[in-house]
Design a protein around this nucleic acid. Structure first.
Lengths: 346, 346
DNA sequence: TGTTAGCACTCTAAATCATTGAGTGCTAAT
DNA sequence: ATTAGCACTCAATGATTTAGAGTGCTAACA
């Protein structure tokens, strides 16, 4: 049953007023501020219908109405005005990204900070997923007689290091050769392929490898181990304190719940990892994590060279400024993708 | 004026009871639970004295007494029973450290997590300060025609990477030579020395350098830049949510203040950086950061090969379980130092 | 002289109660 | 179909009371 036009307007009014004020919205308010040519009584009737349909709820008999998750969902999908970032916001994002230097993880961390600063909600971000990138350069370095450092460079400028021991003192020249061979064989493969690779397949390869087989059989497993270990991805979050300003978190217990989630990298990883669409919006109980049943989450992916390598998002109350947040998240991830792609190309 | 013995006992009783309960302590309580052979009236007299001397305070006329910062200070310095970690705790720390793998920063992060889990307060930690370590190995790697990756390995297994561009396509052989020269000249120097080094001094050095001067003059500044940039040290914190369980943070505003401090890496860096003694205890208003005037901070340094390279600490209310926390922080940093030293040697 | 019992006094926290007002649902009139 | 009118509900607010924990002081005591 498609909602009548007036019902839509009333629902929209209720949601937008509630987003602003966090107070239940009464018929009088709607009539005065939003639908000035309709009387409160009429609106009351409509509201009763909307409640019956499950779009709004009443905290108690003598209070106004509050949007339900279903209401927010309709709002986001159909009712809301979809805005884009304004000039100042766009400029702000651009500027903030200008002054970033250093490792790529720091760039993501910074992006997270920007996001929480601009939205006044909490933000979470996942550093580029190593496994989604592909090998660009690999180098084994002899740090001292018994320690070898593997340096792995992939797409998007991600660099990983791993130190491991060997019992035998490998000659510089040999390592040099091994480096050449490995790079020749492996560069261009995705890390995911590498990790699942059958080592033996490589070992029985063509000519020159056999010569160093001993060293290989020592070094390769360690290298794969390092690769596997690096699959773990850093998770950042920022702006948790912002939420304490919101009336819904006046209850310290709720705030604590929330903070606990933000500290569980595993959980956040799960949240950020199952993002497939470009922008994903999760409202209240739609959330898999039950601790977040009063929260909404807006995430978006960022990519390198058109390939999705990570995601970043905003976590706030269901009473969220959806339109604003969506536009900001969208703009931010686009900028982020651009920068990532540029950094490496330029 | 040295406090009389009985006054000491009373002060100790008040502090320990207050640490447990967070409720002002009355004369009756002290008489009943701690000094059973002294009447409440007598204790009242003593308490009036203690208050005059500034060791305790009265929230309001008809309440019990609460320790002042000065009182806690005396308690920590002279009154408190100095305990050490018990077997379970010791075992717990040992075990937790066993299963750590991966980068050194992760080790510190994990240490921070252990600390907050064991104490139920918030913990902060500083990753090893790059500048306090010395160069072990340096390698420039050609990633592709125009990008060079500098890998810097120092003491305690710290590894830093930096990618930079060159306009000229440097030959592999040349880079190889430069690596040799740089390592020969620079290995063993502390990063601090390196950073403050006069480049020209190196450039006009003996024989073989001249040959590659052009390349050198391109590469060295970038390298120094990378070193300087790496001086920034990662700061971790954990367990902030623990504090929300404490009655003193029932006030959301206070909690927010606190969280904000924990998000300001700069502030935390300052806090952790000015640690000179092995263990340092800062109580309430002794703290330089005014936002922490209701908190106590216990920090300790950890070291590699006897050289201090970082520190880690616990942040909680002034009503902190000093003895317990001190023993845990002490044990943890000792273990950490051991492990750091072992990792690299073994 | 140090200690203690007794007592009046203070002040917060909790409980109780009345009041206010925002908002509703229903009915009847338009 | 819309709206004015009205009785009703219920949370929030504030005033008032009560209870009790704790103090300081005085006077008695060892």
């Amino acid at each position: 049953m498609p909602l009548g036009r007036r019902k839509q307007l009333i629902l929209q009014a209720i949601i937008e007023d509630y987003i602003k004020t966090a107070e239940p919205v009464g018929s009088r308010t709607v009539s005065k501020k939003y639908l000035t040519n309709v009387s409160p009584a009429t609106i009351r009737n409509e509201m009763a219908d909307l409640e019956e349909m499950g779009y709004i709820e009443q905290p108690h008999t003598s209070a106004g109405r509050v949007p339900s998750d279903k209401g927010y969902r309709l709002y986001v999908d159909e009712l809301m005005d979809k805005r884009t970032v304004n000039k100042q916001e766009h400029e702000f994002i651009r500027k903030e990204f200008m002054e970033v230097v250093g490792e790529i993880d720091m760039l993501i961390k910074h992006a997270s900070r920007i996001l929480s600063a601009m939205t006044n909600y909490a933000s979470i971000a996942m550093a580029p997923q190593f496994k989604r990138t592909s090998l660009k350069h690999l180098q084994l370095i002899k740090v001292d007689s018994y320690n070898i450092l593997a340096v792995i460079v992939t797409d998007a400028g991600i660099i990983k290091n791993s130190i491991f021991r060997t019992e035998t003192d490998i000659e510089d020249g040999v390592l040099e050769k091994i480096n050449k061979i490995l790079n020749h064989k492996l560069v261009g493969l995705s890390i995911e392929e590498l990790v699942n690779m059958d080592i033996s397949q490589l070992e029985v390869g063509a000519g020159p490898i056999g010569e160093y087989e001993q060293v290989f059989s020592k070094v390769l497993p360690e290298l794969l181990q390092a690769l596997r270990y690096s699959e773990r991805v850093e998770i950042f979050s920022d702006g948790a304190a912002n939420l304490l300003d919101l009336p819904e978190y006046n209850d310290v217990q709720k705030a604590k719940n929330f903070l606990n989630v933000l500290n569980e990298s595993e959980l956040l990883y799960d949240i950020l990892n199952d993002v497939s669409n470009n922008i994903s919006i999760t409202i209240g109980k739609e959330n898999k994590i039950h601790q977040l049943k009063d929260c909404s989450l807006i995430t978006a992916t960022y990519s390198y060279n058109g390939k999705i390598i990570g995601s970043i998002g905003v976590l706030g109350p269901t009473r969220m400024k959806y339109s604003k947040v969506i536009s900001i998240v969208d703009c931010l991830t686009k900028n982020l993708s651009d920068i990532l792609t540029k950094i490496v190309k330029s």
